[in-house]
C-alpha cells in the first residue's frame, strides 16, 4: 500500500488549517480551521494504521477518539463564541483587545 498521497493530503489540509487560524478574523472560521487540522490528523492516523497493519488498529481507534473529543471541544468553543457575541455583538477576533501587553 502506498501512503504518500494520504500524507500529502493530510499535510496540505493541516497547512490550510494553520493558515486559516492565522488570517481568519471571525472566531467561527478560526474554529473551522482548527477542525480542518484535526481532520488532517485523522487522515494521517487512519492511513498509518492501515499501512502498519497494526493488530490493535491503534490508528483507527485513535481517530475515533479524536473525532469524539473534537466534538466536545467544538461544543465548548461555540459556547464561548456565543458568549463573546452577546457581550460585544461581534465575534471578530481582531476586536479582542481589552487585554494586551
Amino acid at each position: 500500500m502506498i501512503v504518500n498521497q494520504f500524507l500529502v493530503l493530510a499535510a496540505l489540509l493541516f497547512s490550510i488549517g494553520i493558515y486559516g487560524v492565522l488570517v481568519r478574523r471571525n472566531a467561527v472560521l478560526v474554529l473551522l480551521s482548527i477542525e480542518l487540522m484535526l481532520t488532517a490528523v485523522n487522515i494521517n492516523l487512519v492511513a498509518f494504521g492501515q499501512y502498519l497493519q497494526d493488530a490493535l488498529v491503534s490508528g483507527q481507534v485513535f481517530a475515533l477518539f479524536v473525532i469524539t473529543v473534537a466534538a466536545a471541544e467544538v461544543g465548548i468553543g461555540l459556547a464561548i463564541v456565543i458568549l463573546i457575541f452577546r457581550n460585544r455583538s461581534s465575534a471578530n477576533v481582531d476586536e479582542l483587545d481589552l487585554l494586551k501587553w
Binding site: 478560526v30 474554529l31 468553543g77 464561548i80 463564541v81 458568549l83 463573546i84 477576533v93 487585554l99
Partner: peptide, 10 residues
C-alpha cells in the same frame, strides 16, 4: 474574562 476564555480556547 470572556476574552481570556476565547483566547485560551483558540
Amino acid at each position: 474574562a470572556d476574552e481570556a476564555a476565547l483566547k485560551y480556547f483558540l
